[in-house]
Each structure stands twice: as structure tokens, then as C-alpha cells.
């Protein structure tokens, strides 16, 4: 498995990276950790003339937590998300989810930005970021803008990001309360058969706030407002969970693949979601 040839660029800044990408247009791709793109290049399913490596862009490696707001540079790796104690305190669901991505070696290289920008329906971070109501910072030749994670994904590998834009940072509020990331997969290194991110706040024994998203059950991540609404105001009892699962079930659209047929995936989605809700509620 040998990729076809390309020219390599390692710009020192976002601005320089954007300049290269803008000049080269379709022929250029930005690379972060590369652990999605490089296998595709080796299988010759991805061809490009110019590879723009962001590893020297220091500003993309920053992770800060201030005033209850988490800001993560796109080049922060999954490994860094796992080992960052402040992040684990502020938003523990991120560590819980990141630990379920790929394997140790891939997590050292794989970045949050790459995981989000690629648009692969199997990636875990997009659903999680929708659950957290994160906002993505995009920079391009026209300047910078922000887009909500919940508005970013259009179809498999299709996002709101323009070709010449770079996803540079992710911002979301620290989440206090119950949380759970549940993922079923065939083995370490596999994508999810189904995964669920759930955040629940409780007040007086009732769900006061909830957010629910699932992964790899559609060509985009599925954040379900209806599923969350089904929980809010309830004691998270069986009827509420059933309603949440029913709501989510109406929004997912799993496809058959080697992980199994649609009927199975739908059932597993319900089971995984129930478990995530139960665990998040127990922690709320």
C-alpha cells in the first residue's frame, strides 16, 4: 500500500496554511494527525498534489479552560484530551469518549480537529461535540467565523467547511452534572456499531437539562432535541427512557455494513442509549 506522490508543506501559521490551500485549491489537503487520511492515501482512495501539515502551527495546540469555557486547538491529540487533568475535571465526558477511540498509538497522533473536520460518520468527536453544543472556529481567506457543531455536518464527509477553510478551534462550556459516553464496537480499533453521548443535569430528582447525541447511525452525527426533551422534567424513569429512545430512533438512519444489518443496529442503538442515559442519570 503505497500512496501516490505529493508535495509537502509545513507552514508555521494558520495564515500561511490558508494561503497555500487557497492557492492550490482542490489539489491541496490539510493534514493533522493523518490517521484517517494517510490510510486512504495508501489505499489510493484519496489523491492529492499538496499536503499541508499543520504540526508546526503552535496556536492550534493550545487547550485552555477559563470562566467555564473550554477552548481546544484543532491539533490537540486524543491522547492530550485524555491526559489533561483540568479537562477531565471540567468536562469528564471528553476523556471517557476519547479513551474509546481507536488504540493508544492512534490516539497519540489523532487530533480533535481531524476527527471533527473529516466528516466521517464513524468518528466519535462530532456526536460528542454536538452533545456539548460546541462551536467550531473556521479560518479561511475571507477571515474567521464560527459555526455550531450541530449545524456543521451535512452528509458523510460533507461539512459546512469550505475547501479553503481550516477548522482551527473548538469551544464549549464546561459541563457539570451527569455524563456518559457509551460505545459498542467489535474490537479495539473499530468504529462504533453504535455510540451515545448523554449529558444530564438533575434538580430535585428531576432532569432539568439534557443533551443526547449518537454516532455512526446515520451519515451525520445525530443530536436529538426530541430525545433530550423526552427526559427533561422526568425522573428519568423507564417511560422517559423509552420516550427518549423512541425519539432518537425516529432520527437515526443506520445502514447495513459488516457490523450488522439495520434492524440490529437500531436495537443496539436503543440499548446503548438506554445505558448511557442510566449512567449519566446515576452521575447527575
Amino acid at each position: 500500500m503505497i500512496p501516490s506522490a505529493f508535495e509537502y508543506h509545513r507552514p508555521p501559521s494558520v495564515a500561511e496554511a490558508i494561503r497555500i490551500v487557497s492557492e492550490r485549491g482542490d489539489d491541496a489537503r490539510v493534514i493533522a494527525g493523518g490517521h484517517s487520511l494517510i490510510p486512504m492515501m495508501k489505499l489510493r482512495m484519496a489523491h492529492l498534489e499538496h499536503l499541508v501539515d499543520l504540526q508546526d502551527v503552535a496556536e492550534l495546540r493550545e487547550l485552555s479552560i477559563a470562566d467555564g469555557i473550554v477552548r481546544i486547538g484543532a491539533m490537540v491529540t486524543q491522547h492530550e484530551l485524555i491526559t489533561h487533568e483540568g479537562l477531565a475535571q471540567a468536562v469528564p465526558i471528553v476523556r471517557e469518549a476519547a479513551l474509546l477511540i481507536a488504540d493508544p498509538q492512534v490516539r497519540y497522533m489523532g487530533t480533535i480537529g481531524g476527527n471533527l473536520a473529516n466528516g466521517d460518520p464513524g468518528n466519535d468527536m462530532p456526536g460528542l461535540m454536538q452533545c456539548l453544543d460546541a462551536r467550531f472556529g473556521l479560518e479561511g481567506p475571507e477571515g474567521s467565523r464560527e459555526v455550531a457543531a450541530r449545524d456543521f455536518y451535512e452528509a458523510a464527509y460533507m461539512t459546512d467547511r469550505a475547501d479553503e477553510e481550516i477548522l482551527t478551534r473548538i469551544t464549549f462550556a464546561a459541563s457539570t452534572g451527569g455524563y456518559a459516553y457509551e460505545k459498542q464496537k467489535r474490537k479495539i480499533g473499530d468504529y462504533a456499531t453504535a455510540a451515545a453521548a448523554v449529558l444530564i443535569n438533575a434538580q430535585d430528582g428531576r432532569v432539568s437539562r439534557a443533551s443526547v447525541a449518537m454516532t455512526n447511525l446515520s451519515d451525520v452525527p445525530v443530536w436529538s432535541e426530541a430525545a433530550a426533551d423526552a427526559l427533561i422534567g422526568t425522573a428519568c424513569d423507564a417511560a422517559a427512557c423509552d420516550a427518549a429512545v423512541a425519539a432518537m430512533s425516529a432520527e437515526i438512519d443506520p445502514q447495513e455494513d459488516s457490523r450488522g444489518p439495520i434492524e440490529f443496529k437500531r436495537h443496539v442503538a436503543g440499548t446503548i442509549l438506554r445505558r448511557a442515559i442510566a449512567r449519566a442519570w446515576a452521575r447527575a
Binding site: D103, R186, K187, I188, G189, D190, Y191, S258
Partner: peptide, 28 residues
């Protein structure tokens, strides 16, 4: 528990990488 060489009806192999061809890790 999972390892197979599977084909679709057109004879396309569906399990040609270690993503889909099951080999357990130390974890499983």
C-alpha cells in the same frame, strides 16, 4: 467469534483489511 472472509454477491471481498477481518487484541 468474528473472523471471516466474506464476499458480496458480486464476489467483492468485504473483509480485506484488519478493520473488518477480526483479530482480537489483548483487550478482547
Amino acid at each position: 467469534m468474528g473472523q471471516e472472509i466474506a464476499y458480496d454477491d458480486l464476489g467483492n471481498i468485504k473483509t480485506a483489511t484488519l478493520m473488518d477481518f477480526f483479530m482480537p487484541t489483548s483487550w478482547e
